[in-house]
Amino acid sequence: MIEFENVSFTYKKKDELVLRNVTFSIKKGELVAFVGRNGAGKTTLIKHINGLLRPAEGEVRVNTENIIKKPISEMAKIVGLAFQNPNHQLFAETVKKELEFGPKNLGIDEEEREKIVLDIAKQFNITHLLERSPFELSGGERRLVSIASVLTMNQQILVLDEPSFGQDYRQKEMLGNYLKELSDNGMTIIVVSHDIDFISEYIPRVIVLLDGEITADGATLDILSDDDLIRKSDLDRPILLDLVDSIKSKYPEFQSFLKETMIADNLLTILTQEKTKKGGSM
């Protein structure tokens, strides 16, 4: 569980606030996306969750505990944070050593480490990569290894910066389903992303940041249907929304969805009902 209460932050005293009065709360097992234009404060915000940055004002609570005094190395056991580019964190000779890095920093002994690494590798389906060098992996594999390597300490909170960056559709699908599975198993996941298609497909809750302030927080569909908000935040309108709108103009009872399968079901059901109403036969 993560709670921000009136958090404000500034990099330099004179400068404007990068975060102002940010308040929100995320429950255990939730999957949430932070969106907003570049420089809206998204990266600054997630750096507060594991103590890389400390609020100038306000309070950050993780599992109901104020983390102001907790060192980052301590927070690493509670929060896994992976940045946008896996190249910025991968460095070891083998994937196995990469996965060991976190536990080793915490002084966990070798036997225990071995077990942790095998567990996490199995969970992420990367056991076959363990002896390979992270530098020779494909982009998608590197992304998986980088996420696995921040989750080796049995953390219950995962924070990802632009996880779908540079991924093709197939990789995104795998990642999206994987995040869903983790959150179903009780992990709290926070994602920062520009990728509206990815968000609309896999992430149920969206929080919008604009100039360091939260301007909206709610169900993904509601947020993404707000054209004004979308424009102000330099986001894309999901392609399918236009389609949904045009269907709605013809069939007002049509419900909005952002997934093709659900749109198809919904549309076909309506068409069938209409046909029965009109008494048409087969």
Partner: peptide, 16 residues
């Protein structure tokens, strides 16, 4: 800028 990101990334993995 990149050095800062890398530092933040490794600190987040418990590097002191």
């Amino acid at each position: 800028n990149e050095t800062n990101i890398i530092m933040a990334a490794q600190k987040s993995r418990g590097l002191q």
